[in-house]
């Protein structure tokens, strides 16, 4: 897999855009997933995932091919997500004050997506709740939790993506886990 990706990266470096399309194809879902879980919004997630791919393309010559490409790509994406979260913090704060409205928004959003059977909707509700609780985590815990439990990446890789010492990553995961436990204890 890595050798295959590196071959494509070499082609991209020589100016072959089609090779980059293959890379986007390969990583689109995982990258979108990270952005979606970080931002809690499909539209923004698409926006940021696209931006992350663009940055990777423009800066492809700074990528060290002896390293893992996904680590580099996820790092670009998580940094963009954290920037976005910090920029919209005032808005988010307003949202948090009228929590009831937001729940309603999310609920109507699901209903709009597609007509789902009742039991499916019940299951969906738990998932929406989990997503909601993740998006309430402070951004530094959120990134660690998403990479650990949704992307299921090893701690060493998370520490590389977030550019943090292993110990710090662990602490963030522990704190994020504990915060989620409290938030979800009534579920």
């Amino acid at each position: 897999m890595d050798a295959l990706v590196n071959k494509r990266i070499k082609r991209v470096m020589k100016g072959d855009q089609d090779a980059f399309a293959e890379i986007v194809e390969l990583y689109q879902h995982q990258l979108f997933q990270i952005c979606y879980r970080m931002l809690g919004n499909r539209h923004e997630a698409e926006d940021i995932a696209q931006e992350a791919f663009t940055r990777a393309y423009v800066n492809i010559h700074t990528f060290d091919q002896s390293r893992k490409f996904s680590t580099w790509l996820y790092r670009i994406a998580t940094n963009l997500c954290i920037d976005r979260i910090r920029k919209k913090k005032p808005d988010f704060h307003l949202d948090a004050e009228v929590r009831g409205t937001e729940g309603l928004n999310m609920y109507s959003k699901i209903a709009n997506d597609e007509e789902l059977p009742e039991e499916e909707l019940m299951r969906m509700e738990v998932q929406e709740r989990v997503q909601y609780e993740i998006s309430r985590l402070p951004d530094k815990y959120r990134a660690a939790i998403v990479l650990k439990y949704l992307e299921e990446l090893p701690l060493a890789e998370i520490s590389e993506i977030l550019d943090l010492p292993l110990g710090t990553v662990k602490t963030r995961i522990h704190r994020g886990r504990e915060a989620l436990r409290k938030q979800l204890s009534n579920l």
């Binding site: 980059f20 689109q28 979108f32 499909r42 995932a49 696209q50 791919f53 998932q127 989990v130």
Partner: peptide, 23 residues
């Protein structure tokens, strides 16, 4: 619970849109 969150997929046409937006 967190791990049961279904894996989301990038919206259809994501690759084309991304490629079109490249400088």
């Amino acid at each position: 619970f967190v791990q049961s969150a279904s894996h989301v997929q990038a919206p259809p046409g994501f690759v084309q849109k991304t490629m079109a937006s490249l400088p």
